[in-house]
Design a protein around this nucleic acid. Structure first.
Length: 431
DNA sequence: TCTTATGATTCATC
DNA sequence: GATGAATCATAAGA
């Protein structure tokens, strides 16, 4: 009951002074008396406001009646003017928004992971990059990589399917709304700008849904990635052969256990591990050896003996040693200086323990020397002359002047490489 | 379950 | 960028 006067009042006030309506009224098409005109307008508005409560058929009939109403053009003009003002006020709020930084981040990440953008082998590039970051290209990792790739491809497919669905739904909905608006524009003024605005609203809504999709996809990729990284982090011992190769190199280059890049590559190839893993291994080995030389004595002796045997057999055959070269052990001998050989290398006598009284090498070391000599003699291929020429005390040698840290740790004379020492003048490979 | 060994990672230094 | 040192995390064995 209250509705009508209030509607009339509110609209009446709004319409006051509208030239369109005034003109219409002055034309006499809106009736002759003011009360009657108000009544007409009130009726029309009331019908418009209640049209949604009616059934479809009723509404259609009423719509038709309204369209044919004599007051319709006047009201339409009024609505047009109101709309024009509204659109003006909307225009300010419709400023071009800067791109959402979060969306940009998501897009960038999806692009980087190979989920968005052109197909690049299901993120193989990302997997390869992730692998390269940790140097993991071993046989075990390849299986993990393919698993990673497969899962990433799956995510990518789901993402694109969903994205397509959203886009399709968005287009369908936009078309539907546009049709509705066009249809409605027959009964109420709807400017193209308004349609445009409506479309952009719809697109924004769908964009927010898309953002959720992107967010979920990113999360999925992150989870996959972290699982993959965890899997890589999972420590696996190198196989026995690889450890032996590395140890052999380490103990045969004990005076300077810093393999060159080439040596690392060669070791990596031999051990079926990566260069990074070789570097890690040597880093760990050096530090652990240095920390607890005593613990490594036995191992050192064993490898020294083995290397000695190898060196002897190689020497006997006049062939090349197969130990990867080290910067200092190769031909030039690096920082080794033959002029200092008197200081650097033990004589046969000193090795025999007759005259050698190394301050840092105590009785236990001496016994190790004896043990080694025993081992060597048992293997039968390591003559004293060879031992004399190849075994040395590295005391006082600073083979790595740039670092200098390695020689801080006393290197037991008994375990130094038979392939080095005076032999360091000759290359490992030219043994 | 505890201990030890060991590969990987991180950070500081040169 | 390579390395040392500390540390983490896990495998392996007692």
């Amino acid at each position: 009951m209250d509705e009508q006067p209030r509607l009339m009042h509110s609209h009446g006030v709004g319409m006051a002074g509208h030239p369109g309506l005034a003109q219409h009224m002055q034309d006499g098409t809106a009736g002759t008396d003011g009360e009657g005109r108000k009544q007409d307008i009130g009726d029309i508005l009331q019908q418009i406001m209640t049209i949604t409560d009616q059934s479809l058929d009723e509404a259609q009939a009423r719509k038709h009646a309204l369209n044919c109403h004599r007051m319709k053009p006047a009201l339409f003009n009024v609505l047009c003017e109101i709309k024009e003002k509204t659109v003006l006020s909307i225009r300010g709020a419709q400023e071009e928004e800067p791109p959402d930084p979060q969306l940009m981040r998501l897009d960038n990440m999806l692009l980087a992971e190979g989920v968005a953008g052109p197909e690049k082998g299901g993120g193989s590039a990302a997997a390869a990059a992730a692998a390269a970051a940790t140097g993991g290209v071993g046989a075990d990792n390849s299986a993990e990589h393919s698993d990673y790739r497969a899962k990433l491809t799956q995510i990518r497919q789901i993402y694109h399917t969903e994205l397509e669905k959203y886009e399709q739904a968005c287009n369908e909905f936009t078309t539907h709304v546009m049709n509705l608006l066009r249809e409605q524009s027959r009964t109420r003024p709807i400017s193209p700008k308004e349609i445009e605005r409506m479309v952009s609203i719809i697109h924004r809504k769908f964009s927010s849904i898309q953002m959720q999709l992107k967010q979920s996809t990113c999360e999925a990729v992150m989870i996959l990635r972290s699982r993959f990284l965890d899997a890589r982090r999972k420590r696996r011992n190198f196989n026995k052969q690889a450890t032996e190769i590395l140890n052999e190199y380490f103990y045969s280059h004990l005076s300077n256990p810093y393999p060159s890049e080439e040596a690392k590559e060669e070791l990596a190839k031999k051990c079926s591990i990566t260069v990074s893993q070789v570097s890690n291994w040597f880093g760990n080995k050096r530090i652990r050896y240095k920390k607890n030389i005593g613990k490594f004595q036995e191992e050192a002796n064993m490898y020294a003996a083995r290397t000695a045997v190898n060196a002897t057999s190689v020497s006997a055959h006049g062939s090349q040693a197969n130990s990867p070269s080290t910067p200092n052990s190769a031909g030039s001998a690096g920082s080794f200086n033959m002029s200092n050989s008197g200081d650097l290398f033990m004589s046969v006598q000193s090795l025999n323990g007759d005259s050698y009284q190394g301050g840092q090498v105590g009785a236990n070391i001496q016994s190790q020397v004896d043990t080694l000599r025993h081992v060597i003699s048992q293997t039968g291929g390591y003559s004293d002359s060879l031992a004399a020429s190849q075994m040395y005390s590295p005391q006082g040698i600073n083979v790595r002047p740039t670092n200098g840290g390695w020689q801080d740790a006393p290197t037991p004379s008994s375990v130094t490489s038979p392939t080095e020492g005076p032999g360091s003048v000759h290359s490992d490979t030219s043994n």
